[in-house]
Each structure stands twice: as C-alpha cells, then as structure tokens.
Design a protein around this nucleic acid. Structure first.
Lengths: 339, 339
DNA sequence: CTGTTAGCGCATTCAG
DNA sequence: CTGAATGCGCTAACAG
C-alpha cells in the first residue's frame, strides 16, 4: 500500500504529529527536523489522505461546482477559469453536471456535497428549495448567474442593459419589426431570459413600436433551438427584418436557418446575439459581449476570500461590464419594396 | 451541526452498525427496521460523510477526471458525457484542469488524487513519467486520447483513417496544392497531430504529389492559431488551393483568415476540418466527424465495469467510427487561369 | 520545539 | 437479524 503518516514518522524518527505539522508548514518545528521530514516524505512518495485529514480537521480543501451543461461554451469557459483559481489556491473541484431535472433533483435531495466541500460555486440558479438546501450546508455560496439572492454572493452582468443595447442598436438602424429568440424553457428559476425579454419590450415601447407576439420564439439556448425558432419566425405573416437572439448559440442557429431559406444576412435580416462566443467572430456575428472567463475567476476569488476571512461580510452582488460588439450581421433594413 | 450516523441510530432506537447496513442496502436487516431507519434518516436529512466512509471502507465513490482544457468544445463534450455516466452510477467527479505545464507538473508530483479516487479518466495523454505516477495509484485508468498504453484502457478513434479520408477527399476533388494546419504545439506526448500528419503525407505520396513544407503551419488547436496558420499559408509563394485543418476550431480560424483576405470558400480555397464541432454545420464546414460524447460515455462505462469486476481483464483499446461529412467548404479547384 | 492522547464518522469484524 | 468493539489516517488539544 501507499505510505501513511506513521511510515514517514518512523522513517524520520519523529512522531506523527510532528510530520503533520512539518508538512503543512505549521509553526513549532525546527528547520532541521522539518527538512528531514520533507525529504523523507518526498522519498516515500507520501501524500496525506484527504479523507482522513478532512475527517480530523473538518476542512476538505474542496469546492463543489454546480453546472447545468459543462459541454456548453459559456459554462465550460466559466468553469475553466474558476477551476484555475481554485487549484492555484490548493483546492480541488468536485464537479456536478446538473442538466437534467432528474439529476438535479437527486443532487438536491441527497446533497452529496454535505460534509465534503468547504464552499459551493453554482453556475445554475437554485430555486427557493434548492437555495435552502445549499444554505443548510453551512458553507459560503457563490453563483455566476441570476440576480441577488439571500445567502449568496453573485457575480454577474447587467442583463437588462445588455439586452437593451442589442435591441436599441436594431431600432437605431431603422428596424421596426424586431423578433426575439429567447431561452425561456431552460432550467427552472432562470431569470436571465425574463430580464432580457423585459428589456426587449421596454425598448420597443420606448421606440413606439407595437409588440407582436408572433415575433417571439423559444430557442432553448441551443443551436438547434435557435434554428427552429428562426424558422418559426420566418413563417409569420409578416416576418421580422431583424432578430435579437438571447445567446450566440441560438443566433448561430438562426443564421443557419436563414441560410437555408436563402435569405441574406444582414441584407434581408439582421441578427444580433448575446455572449460573444469564441466563434462569434468567425461568423461575423454582432453581439453583446460579456466577460465570461472573468466572471468565473472573480466568483472563485470571492469564494476563496470568504474562506480566508470567515468573519467578513461577503459582497452581495458584483456586476461585470458588457458591451455591444458590432460585426457584420446587422445593417439597416432593406429600403422598401417587396421582400 | 448536521446529523451523524449516531443521531440516526439513537432516533431510530438501533445501533450505528444497523443504520449503516440499512442505508446501504446491505443484507441482514429486517424490512421493518430498515423502513424505520430510512424514514428517520430522511427526516433528519442525514447523508453519510464521504470522508468518514472512505476512510473506513477504502472506497471513495469518486472518479478523478484529468482534462487539458475544459473550456474547449471537444473536452467539454467528453467530460459532460462521462460525468453523466459516473453520476448515474453514484460516483462523484473530481475535476483537474491541467492545461498549463505548471499545473500539470504540480498535479503529477503531488498527485492530489492519491487515496481520494477509485479510478482515473484522463482526457490528456500522460507521458511515461506521468503514466507511471498514475499507475502507482493502483486504480483503474482509462483515457480517451492517443494510442494504446500499458496499464490504460483507451477509447479513441482511428486518427490515421480520419485524416486520410479528409485529405483523400481533397485529392479526389482535383487539388494538388494541399496545405495542412496542425496542432503540433499542444501538450506533450500528444500523438494525435503526428498521426494525422503521417496520413496527410501518405495520401500525398500515394497521389504522386510532392510534399511542400511551406504548406504546413501550426495552429495550436485554437481558432486564433488557425487564423494565424492560414495567413502564413497564404503568404507562401504558391499558396494552397485546399487546406486540411486538424481540428474544426482551427478550420474556423482559417475560414476567418480567408474571409479577411477576401478569398471565397470553396471557390478560391477549400477547407476541411476534423471533429464535427457543434457549430461546424453553422459555417457549412466539411469535416471528419467523430463521436465525441460517445467516447466520453464509453470510457466512463468501461471504467465503471472495471470497478465492478476487479478481476476481469480490461479491454486495452476501443476504436469508435469516424466518417467524412461533406458540406460547403470543399469543391474542385478553380479551372485554371491566374488567381 | 516535540510527543501523547483523543477523537473525527463511518464500515467492518466478531459475538450474541 | 442485531449490537459492541475496533480501526481507517489524520489533526488538535494537551503535556512536557
């Protein structure tokens, strides 16, 4: 079997406690003894068992990260950045991929992170029951999505301002029939699509444009969904001349649908997305950029700070900047004439 | 604090051992008592501490997953699928994002998974030293990349056949100046780019086409790298009329470079990628499709099987099918005339 | 500065 | 079928 702390203690001619202290850099060990212990440990390939040390100390040096879809660009990017911060600080990451309602439900009823993590970073928005479950863990909680929540530190963006800049851009170009592809049927309690929709409605109202329900479709936050939604919109009696997609993935699906219908972008239809996906530039997509990796990194940092300073009051809500990136999928509507 | 096994035992009027047996579905507990214990545990919100149970039993119910870049589509997709299989079987996932040489080195010297996982799934190719370190863990090992390795079960694709189908497709279209964008400067011991390059050379030789080193460039497996590489190729004295990119992300970067140079695809230059990225269809990219999520799921299943049947000899190497997907970025070269 | 003594919470003998 | 003891490997409190 692999070496235990007692093996190291014996080999170094000291007690187990001294080994423990020495290896964790705690004070109370003379330099000479410490060096010897470190050398012996290295030579034996000793690593402390996290299970045992967690059990004894109550600290796990592990962060639980909850993600709806690791395969999705947005979440993968946030996770990547957050993991780097955690691992640099000596923390391991326990990953929970909670995309389907069943896995999600199972997670929150069994709560496998109990007694297993020092903190939780949630990339999904917990509903009230789920929030309560998480709070019952008694560890710091942070999320990168949705609005402020009691008991959570949230790092996010101003969704309303982002959506507003997108829709206003289309209005300013002269569009009057502006469609929207939303991501409404996503996870429960996902307020993002609602916020973005509200902005959309506000801008239309502000511009004196009457809202047409036939110009809204659900794209489920996926490429395929975006394609379906765009196809739906094109089937309307008076199709839109511009579309705001609530995510770049849906916008790309919309582009695909438009291409299949032999419609030119932006000549026939303008499209604006949201996220600034790494491939948005490849397809020339105009979009609302948000600092995705930075949100993950910042959320991780805030969580670590709470671990370091248990007393301090954590920040409730941090907002990162967004900005509209103009590319080639938006232009003024066709002068007039029949489509 | 949160309930312990003794709290449950006391509340149910039984001993801790009975609680342990009942909750884990072990035989030796009467139905009536079992029901009572389950009810009490649920009511108290009891979950066994993984640390304690690992320490006592030696089993962690945790899988370590090593990933070079979680943010990349390929790895995110593999991870997503693998995690679902693991969690469905009751295993948690400890994620290690080992993109940079430093984090990678630290991981393999400190080996934080020691005594912490029941098995390891590596989405990166360990070099010899790293392989030895992993083998020293004494747990089943599986990887989804690279060729067969002693001590590992590997689930992958036939890289040579994949690259061959891509390059042969270009040759069959009539191209003679065929460039390649490879991903050579990736992680150490990453044999994939080498295999694919060998195929490229073989097909050229087979078609009687002389290999021109000026037609090869390194794209680092990223969109930006692909763009840079394509720009390089276009600067050659006799630029290629077709390009094989070793990944879709690099192919998309190449498309961007071509667009910036006002070159038409496929009229001026044909492009074929590798992977069948979820957005390949959006940009109409011809590519070699590989079953990405399936590889993750299959690798996870094989690992679980080894955990269930410790005696059985694990399969050494499983190959998944690839296929060429024809879209709109490939066509015969321009008839003749000056470019 | 160092060693000794107790658990951390659970799974696993072994008795009964 | 059930309970009492024992120890997993480590850290923390206490002595010295």
């Amino acid at each position: 079997m692999t070496a235990s702390i007692n093996d190291v203690a014996r080999a170094a001619g000291v007690s187990a406690s001294t080994v423990s202290r020495a290896l964790r850099g705690r004070p109370g060990v003379s330099g000479e003894v410490r060096d010897r212990i470190v050398a012996v440990a290295a030579q034996l390939g000793y690593t402390a068992s996290r299970s045992a040390s967690s059990l004894a100390s109550g600290r796990t040096h592990t962060i639980g990260v909850l993600v709806p879809y690791v395969g999705r660009w947005f979440f993968g990017t946030v996770l990547d950045a957050a993991e780097k911060v955690f691992s640099a600080a000596g923390y391991d990451v326990l990953l929970y991929n909670l995309g389907s309602p069943e896995t999600r439900k199972r997670f929150f009823t069994r709560l496998p992170v109990r007694k297993r993590v020092d903190a939780v970073l949630s990339l999904l928005i917990p509903d009230d029951g789920e929030s309560a479950a998480l709070r019952s863990l008694g560890v710091p909680l942070t999320t990168t999505v949705g609005g402020p929540r009691p008991g959570f530190t949230v790092v996010g963006i101003d969704d309303r301002a982002g959506a507003e800049s997108a829709v206003r851009h289309l209005v300013n170009l002269g569009h009057r029939r502006i469609g929207m592809i939303s991501g409404a049927s996503g996870p429960l309690h996902w307020t993002t699509p609602i916020e973005r929709r509200n902005s959309y409605l506000d801008v239309l109202a502000d511009a004196g444009i009457e809202h047409d329900p036939a110009l809204e479709a659900d794209g489920d936050y996926t490429v395929e969904g975006g394609e379906r939604a765009m196809t739906e919109l094109l089937a309307a009696s008076r199709p839109p001349t511009a579309v705001f997609a609530q995510s770049d993935e849906m916008a790309m699906g919309a582009l695909r649908a438009l291409r299949r219908h032999r419609l030119k972008v932006p000549d026939d239809v303008s499209v604006v997305g949201f996220d600034d996906h790494e491939l948005a530039d490849v397809v020339g997509l105009t979009t609302v950029a948000q600092p995705v990796a930075e949100q993950g990194a910042e959320a991780a940092r805030l969580l670590l700070r709470q671990l370091d300073e248990p007393g301090a009051e954590p920040p409730g809500h941090v907002q990162m900047p967004i900005r509209l990136v103009l590319r080639e999928t938006t232009a003024p509507p066709r002068p007039r004439g029949p489509r």
